Simulated scan of single mutants.
Amino acid sequence: MVDDYHINLIKKYLEDKCTPAEKLEVEAWFELYRGGDREFFDNDEKLINQAMMRSLVDIHQKIDSSQAPEDEDKIVHLKPKLKLRWIAIAATVLLFIMAGSYFTVHKKAVVQPLAKNHLLKGDTLIGNNKAILTLGNGKRIVLDDAKEGRLAVQGNVAITKATDGRVIYNATGQTSKVPIRGEIASNTITTPKGGQYHIVLPDGSSVWLDAASSITYPPEFTGNKRQVQLIGEAYFEVSKDPTKPFCVNVDNKQQIEVLGTHFNVQAYPDDRDIKTTLLEGSVKLLYRNKHAILKPGQMAVNDPDKSLLIKPADMYEVMAWKNNMFVFNNENIKSIMKRLARWYDVDVVFEGNMEKVNFFGNYSRSKSLANLLKNIELTEKVHFKIEGRRVTIIAQ
């Protein structure tokens, strides 16, 4: 269901008030929708929230009346922009209101209704907000089970679970009698397979952890750097502090230095490369005594056996996980299943040659694994068998 966040973000986009990161997020919704089958979604009246649609129509009419071009020259320049914005609105409505999902094969949607079949009997739980916080003294707190409110106090910092589930570090305003020293005080938040979590660090920076990931950080940033360590995937929105760089040690393989910016890092131990994508600001990568500077919209691919590659990033694909989507862009089934295994917490086995089995598709991470696999099966490239938490992929 569309919520206030999405409505307000759309309005900001229409008024040219979005930050670069917010603009990319809205346009990511458009890109996700563009590959789908509009006729299928438009004809399903059960998926439409009438109040929301009326609100969006009002906005659209306001645009038409307030930004109508005065001559033909302006039509050439304004029409594409207005069209993109209106499509972005439609994309948002359909993506977040629709009860089902779609899966595209070579950019053609597969929209057949899903019948009951053997896959549904072995369906798996969908990932959600869950993680474990390990304090410097070794105490472990299961965050999804913890009640809202204060979880612990370290030095003069209180660790709190907010009503929306975030873990937030805030100064208590009191001086601790027991000082915090060194690495012994470091905290770690770890998400299991099927988990994700949002943390607000002591400096106000926000971090979103994807499944099977962890971040280690001090309860207070002292000294001349804000140092954290990451394994897995995370999206960072770093609070600006020109006097104290924010540094990410990526699995002891790469260093990232920023002053204040938005970026995504993908660095799972079972992946060959580390992918760093910049949404806004500036990022400095340190790798093997060399460094590189990223510009917004760029991705750095760090493969240990190759030179560091910097290329334009596909932003809607990179940010899909944070927008609660899977996006497969001609992706091999082995790579797809690796991601699905992390989110749905399943074991994967392959039977047959998967070298040329690739797919295009978009799918909500809030929907069931069984439905997704059934849609992939409709391409007649592979067949799936689910036994408990074991998924076997059989080449056709």
Rank of each mutant, 00 (worst) to 15 (best):
K338Q: 12
V200L: 04
S65T: 14
E183Q: 11
A109W: 02
K225P: 09
V2A: 09
V357P: 14
V105A: 11
Q298P: 06
L285N: 11
F246G: 11
L373P: 12
G136P: 02
K284W: 06
P219A: 10
K295T: 06
R365I: 00
T163R: 04
R342S: 06
D251Y: 12
L125C: 06
H198W: 13
N375P: 05
L294V: 01
F96W: 12
G195I: 09
I10D: 07
V349M: 13
K311N: 11
R342V: 10
E220W: 01
L32F: 14
N323K: 01
K311W: 06
V250R: 10
V283F: 00
P219K: 04
Y102Q: 14
A28G: 12
V153T: 13
K116R: 08
S186Q: 15
F221N: 02
K121L: 15
G100H: 13
T379C: 08
I333S: 08
N323Q: 14
N170M: 01
T134W: 08
C247N: 07
A109Y: 06
K275E: 08
L209Q: 09
C18V: 13
G138T: 11
S282P: 03
E355K: 14
D273I: 01
I180F: 00
G173P: 09
A211T: 11
M337H: 08
D58V: 15
N117L: 07
D210Y: 01
L279S: 15
A51I: 07
L114E: 13
D123C: 02
V346I: 14
F350R: 00
I10M: 06
D37W: 01
N170V: 06
R140I: 01
A115K: 09
V105E: 09
K322H: 13
E27K: 03
V357R: 15
A115C: 07
T124R: 09
N137P: 15
R389V: 04
C18F: 05
D16K: 03
S65L: 12
E15P: 04
T261W: 06
R34I: 14
A146K: 03
G194M: 10
K17F: 09
K295D: 03
I310F: 03
M315W: 00
Q196Y: 05
K83G: 14
V93W: 04
A292P: 05
V248W: 00
G127T: 13
V110Y: 05
K108V: 15
R226E: 06
M299W: 05
D123H: 12
G122I: 05
I333D: 02
H383T: 14
N224S: 13
K79P: 03
R390L: 11
S364E: 10
Q196I: 07
A211S: 14
S335M: 00
F328A: 00
I184Q: 14
Y217L: 04
V200W: 03
G165W: 00
D16H: 00
D303S: 05
I89C: 14
L373R: 08
D203F: 00
A68C: 13
S66V: 09
L47R: 05
D42P: 02
K81D: 15
I180Q: 11
L82D: 10
I376E: 12
A234W: 08
A171R: 08
D210V: 04
N249F: 06
Q255F: 11
A395R: 03
D4S: 07
T392V: 10
D37I: 01
E15K: 05
Q227M: 11
L114G: 07
P219E: 02
G297T: 08
L259G: 05
L95Y: 04
H77A: 09
I126G: 04
E31M: 13
N187K: 09
P80S: 07
